[in-house]
């Protein structure tokens, strides 16, 4: 990963969903976004403002109707073919017949040509990653035997285990209780710190966005667009104590303020 370069670049992206017998739905309109390599960027905004759509464009799951999306300089489909991407959806999306270990290694076993070409830099093995995520005892269990938090951690290890250049996460913690959520945030930051991927992270939680991100992208709906980009200058590592500091609250208030703007734009 070339240092100081751009990892994700979205230029004038527009995505329209046709609506039967109505005006078409503009999920994204003229969206510009630049994510520097190695940074952690969150996307926040009211429901239906196009956060997931933006993520799907970057993941190459859908094509923009207009504009240009690049991941590390190439089109998303090429990035996927070269296994530069990792995706963590909202549901853990584990395969119920595979153990945790087999679940996290399956993505390595498909599209092997790309795996070989990447010949990944020496780093922690899957077993080590699972241990780091506190899943050492769950390795040979089936997903149905795990708690929701453990399943979500498995999904995160599955994505990190690919050693992707870009990690795309769509509300990965939204189904978890607050304490589980906070401890997973911490583990996510640890993994990210070690493996140095670029992260694009969709969330509904203001404090989650502030804690995790270098940059917070605020979006508004109808049409889906970016209304604000807030840089977060908080020191890392960001442990649990940080959550109580006035600086942290300052950023929370700031994001909440801008979000209110996005909601009002929605009502207007």
């Amino acid at each position: 990963m070339p240092g100081g370069s751009v990892s994700i670049s979205v230029r004038g992206a527009r995505r329209v969903y046709p609506v039967k017998g109505g005006t078409d739905l503009i999920a994204l309109d003229d969206v510009d976004l630049t994510v520097p390599a190695g940074s952690f960027v969150s996307v926040i905004g009211p429901s239906g403002c196009g956060k997931s759509t933006l993520l799907r464009l970057v993941a190459g799951l859908e094509d923009a109707d207009r504009g240009d999306v690049r991941v590390c300089g190439v089109r998303p489909a090429e990035a996927a073919a070269a296994k530069m991407l990792g995706l963590v959806p909202q549901a853990p999306a584990l395969l119920p017949w595979l153990t945790v270990l087999k679940n996290v290694t399956l993505p390595l076993r498909v599209n092997r040509a790309a795996s070989r070409r990447r010949a990944s830099a020496p780093g922690p093995s899957m077993e080590e990653l699972l241990r780091k995520a506190g899943l050492q005892d769950a390795m040979h269990k089936l997903p149905s035997q795990l708690s929701g938090g453990m399943q979500q951690r498995t999904a995160i290890v599955r994505a990190f285990g690919l050693r992707p250049d870009v990690l795309l996460m769509d509300e990965p913690f939204s189904a978890l209780d607050e304490f589980t959520r906070e401890s997973l945030q911490e583990q996510l930051l640890d993994l990210w710190d070690e493996l140095k991927a670029t992260v694009l992270f969709v969330t509904h939680s203001v404090s989650e966005a502030v804690r995790l991100s270098d940059k917070i992208v605020v979006m508004a709906p109808r049409p889906g667009r970016i209304t604000d980009i807030i840089d977060v200058h908080l020191p890392r590592p960001r442990g649990a104590e940080l959550l109580k500091t006035p600086e942290f609250h300052h950023y929370e208030d700031l994001v909440r303020d801008r979000l209110r703007g996005a909601f009002q734009a929605n009502a207007a």
């Binding site: 799907r56 993941a59 190459g60 799951l61 996927a80 073919a81 296994k83 991407l85 990792g86 995706l87 959806p89 909202q90 549901a91 999306a93 395969l95 017949w97 399956l106 993505p107 076993r109 498909v110 599209n111 790309a114 599955r158 994505a159 690919l162 795309l168």
Partner: peptide, 29 residues
Amino acid sequence: VPQPVLQVYRTVNASRLETLWYIRIPMAM
């Protein structure tokens, strides 16, 4: 097969045959 599962494996460009063999057929059992 749930959509999120397919999306995860599409972002690593799993071939149709791989998706069939590793995901769809076990899911159909």
